[in-house]
Simulated scan of single mutants.
Amino acid sequence: MSTMTLAMRDSKTMLRRNLKRWMRYPSMTVLLIGMPIVFLLLFVYVFGETLGAGISGAGGGRADYIAYVTPAILLMTVTSAIQGTSISVAMDMTEGIVARFRTMAIARTSVLIGHVIGSLIQTMLSIAVVLGVALLIGFRPAAGPVEWLALTGFLLLLSLALVWLAVALGMVCKSVETASNVLMPLVLLPFLGSGFVPTESMPTVLRWFAEYQPFTPIIETIRGLIMDTPIGDSAWQAVAWCVVTVVGSYFWARKLYNRDPSA
């Protein structure tokens, strides 16, 4: 068999290993999916009426706010799901299984590829579940077939970027406990962007940060695609952030995996 065929076979084996891990630890998956749903219900049913009126004017309310906040919740779904990736990678690195893999006749990249593809599957399923809950409580997207296709592609690119970042950070962490917290800033960043309130309502310094941090154009791109509203420059900025993150995180993760274990 060719080198490519062997690498694909080994990657499938590692993917199957990660999928079986999910089935053995379903509580982690439920927790990672449950957090965005809790935030969605909290903001829609506790703050939605007031914030919706503030965003859309006197005639606005909960229905307007759910349309505004759902894109941010979808982003939070991705950032929540990749916490599981970081934890899984840290478990492999700290429990010695990776050292064993290094002694086996398998493609070195297959270990990382298995984590990445498995995490992408988990992340996209999580997005589908959270979006389903949003539809059940009144979210009504305006996207057509083209917009849905573009949104799916963009969410895949975003998930790929953050999954590779989670893989790299999981290898940096010296313990599983550290890995469970290292991605927490990514969960909080949507709050400091345009995810929950417009940046225009923020104080000057915070507004400057919110407008130029990477998650704001990402949120605006998701919002524009799913609600079929103008996106402007946010689209290319969001794609650029994702591409830079994918490339940088991939080479970082590969370097970390290939380093001398005794170093």
Rank of each mutant, 00 (worst) to 15 (best):
A99P: 01
I218G: 09
G195N: 06
G52Y: 07
R9A: 11
S249G: 05
R9P: 09
A105I: 02
V197H: 00
M76I: 08
L151P: 06
V111Q: 07
F47A: 15
L156V: 14
L41S: 03
A253K: 06
P26H: 10
V187K: 01
I219H: 02
F39W: 03
I33E: 02
T204G: 13
S2H: 12
A90N: 05
A150V: 10
S80K: 01
V172W: 14
A90H: 06
T13N: 04
T109L: 08
I106K: 07
F39D: 00
G57I: 11
F209I: 15
L131Q: 13
T152S: 12
M28T: 08
L75M: 13
L136S: 09
A240Y: 11
L32K: 01
T29V: 15
S262C: 08
I82G: 05
L51G: 00
W252N: 07
L15S: 07
I127S: 02
L19A: 14
W148G: 02
R9V: 05
W236L: 13
L162H: 10
T13C: 04
P145D: 11
I55R: 06
I218Y: 08
A263C: 08
P26G: 09
I37L: 01
L75K: 00
M76K: 04
E200H: 09
G118F: 04
M35C: 06
L75E: 00
L192W: 11
R259H: 09
C242T: 08
F43H: 00
G34Q: 04
L112H: 02
T152F: 11
Q122F: 11
A7F: 04
Q122I: 07
V69Q: 10
V176R: 10
T5S: 15
T13L: 14
G132S: 07
V129D: 02
S2C: 12
E200Q: 11
M91D: 11
V246M: 12
P26C: 08
I137D: 07
D10N: 11
M93Q: 14
L189E: 05
P141A: 12
F251R: 09
T29I: 14
